[in-house]
Design a protein around this nucleic acid. Structure first.
Lengths: 204, 204, 204, 204
DNA sequence: ACCGACGGGACCGCCCGTTGTT
DNA sequence: AACAACGGGCGGTCCCGTCGGT
């Protein structure tokens, strides 16, 4: 696989800018911050990104990809819906204890940051959040119901909303207070909750 | 009660600036936005506030006070802990359906906005969030346990973390997608949850 | 007549910026040049002008007004069409000998400057040039024909095009070589030309 | 005649850049515009030109050469001074109706563009304009007087100034309004003018 | 109590030109 | 000979806050 110098630099810029945007927010982060973080100058950055916007979105994509990869790894090899949901919750518990992405949950930050000022960023956050809610958690529940692992009347949308909302809220508090205990309590609750969704064992 | 013209102007500025900061965020909102919203000019604002920071914090206080008043009103006249928790949840369900404060939950916004760029705002958010978690929800649970309304082993901190996290996460999604269904599902779940905390009825 | 400080400053900025734009052109003149010429700083300028464009157009208007006032003064008190045309030509001969507006003819500069890059400036130049061609020279000829001062078949548009084109071309060369002799030769020619337009004396 | 690849590229760059500079002006045209017009990248251009200045001057030379070739072709085969002057005027009438060089008269543009900001370009414009005024039109008149084709007291400098000034001014208006009628009226006038210079026929 | 002129700094983006690399 | 990465500076614009004047 061939990577040109430009591609490598572009990747370097993204990786250096990602924590900057995640910590300071789109408006709070200046291009100067990015230059300092990357070690490049204006000319070097704007060769690879047409604008701060483009870079910010690339940084968001990068941050969420990092988290998404962690989720995929956590789910890997598990086929029971309850187990998968538990793994999902436990991933975020670990996430809260040691943020792999400086600044907290990038989706949360991007969503709150772009409230009314940055439609493009908001659209991207909507899209990625949709993947998480419907694509990841929702799919686990759907399949779990199909396979008889979960109670047949389990509503995938309800479970998704509950699990994701709880986790995001917990990450907010955890980051605000720099204290993972909120995440722990919420994770414990969610573990109980997802176990309660399991189909009843049928005695032989 | 006497209100001087200055006090009235100050209050007017706060009320006009509050939605601006809540919608655009601290960094996204400019003093020009505030001037436009208030109808005043620079001199008129800086007579009452030493800086943008001071105004932003006053706006945050105003926004959270508005929400806090709503919560107090919702809890008024209810003495059973489960009922009070239900009322708390239902208040936020209604909140999600029709945000009384433009821009979504001010605490959520302030917390995410100030990640690493504005310690003062962050401290204020921590303080107010503390009032909500420990002072409001935590107290309800504590008293509920004391009065035998809730199961004796109910952990106030756990309930607080779960309820507040879920609600904040739901408000985030609701605002991001402009769709209250997330809040509804989470509210339904929380209602079930808080009812499960009720002390078992003892037959005479 | 009351003039506020703001109005006075605005006028001062226009008067200071006008020669800068006329000499360096719209693209060649930077806001820094304007700041240096006015003695103000960024904040002081942008209080009175929303953009460089707005200031540039104000400067063009100022420059052309200065010239226009000179023309009006030169024509004042003359009622014979030939005399008025002669005065018009002589005004520009004097103009070429001692440019009252540094940088040469502002209309010429604006027209050439805005070729394809600045539609707004171009539109303004068209408008003002139209006033000169049709409004000033054309009207003199029209009235001269009506009053029998000029030969009845004299075409106002032809005279306008010829007089204005010659003068502008002469100003171009005069400014390019810093040598008014081109203007003198053209002026001499135009004097002869406009005299040839006079209605023939009718012997009683 | 051998042309290396380098020479061909250099010529290609000049031909592509010439209309860009003529339309946008020296300051209004950026190297990016040139790159887009040529299809080359930075390295490709700076191999052949040391700077934007050098390229701009080469472009001016190219543009004026194109026009100069047209003039020479129009004069070719004519030996009577009046005929040659008529051909000169008619060439420019045709020029105004269909600009062979996008952006109008390159000499006019360069002269106005370089007012005080670009001495080198201004010097080049002076030089080329001198060729036109003295070298071309002036020489025609001089020879016409020598050969008895024109009235003996005809002043070459006066004719040059008048003809060239009128034409340039007409081109300015024609380009400004995208309307060749100014050029037509001026050309008609100049035709009459140059015919009036003819030596009187001496009856045998 | 309020307006509005103003300073001066920081913002993002584009500029021209140089330098490795192919 | 040409590309493409990059430096570093300047472009116009908007920022917040001060201060004189009303």
């Amino acid at each position: 696989m061939v990577t040109t110098k430009g591609q490598r630099t572009r990747q370097h810029v993204i990786e250096a800018a990602a924590p900057v945007f995640n910590q300071k927010g789109y408006w709070g982060a200046s291009m100067r911050d990015v230059l300092d973080a990357t070690g490049l100058e204006k000319g070097g950055i704007y060769n690879h990104f047409a604008s701060k916007d483009e870079l910010a979105i690339a940084a968001l994509d990068h941050n969420t990809t990092v988290v998404g990869d962690g989720i995929r790894a956590a789910l890997h090899g598990r086929f029971d819906a309850v187990e998968r949901l538990e793994a999902f919750v436990e991933f975020y518990r670990a996430f809260a204890h040691d943020f792999p992405v400086p600044g907290g949950c990038p989706l949360l930050n991007a969503s709150a940051d772009s409230d009314d000022t940055h439609p493009e960023l908001r659209a991207r956050a909507q899209e990625i959040f949709g993947d998480l809610i419907d694509g990841t958690v929702g799919r686990i529940v759907e399949r779990g119901v199909e396979r008889g692992q979960l109670q047949p009347d389990t509503d995938p949308q309800a479970v998704s909303s509950i699990v994701v909302s709880s986790i995001e809220g917990a990450l907010l508090l955890t980051h605000l207070y720099d204290d993972p205990s909120h995440a722990d309590r919420v994770a414990d609750h969610l573990i109980t909750y997802v176990r309660s969704l399991a189909a009843e064992e049928t005695p032989s």
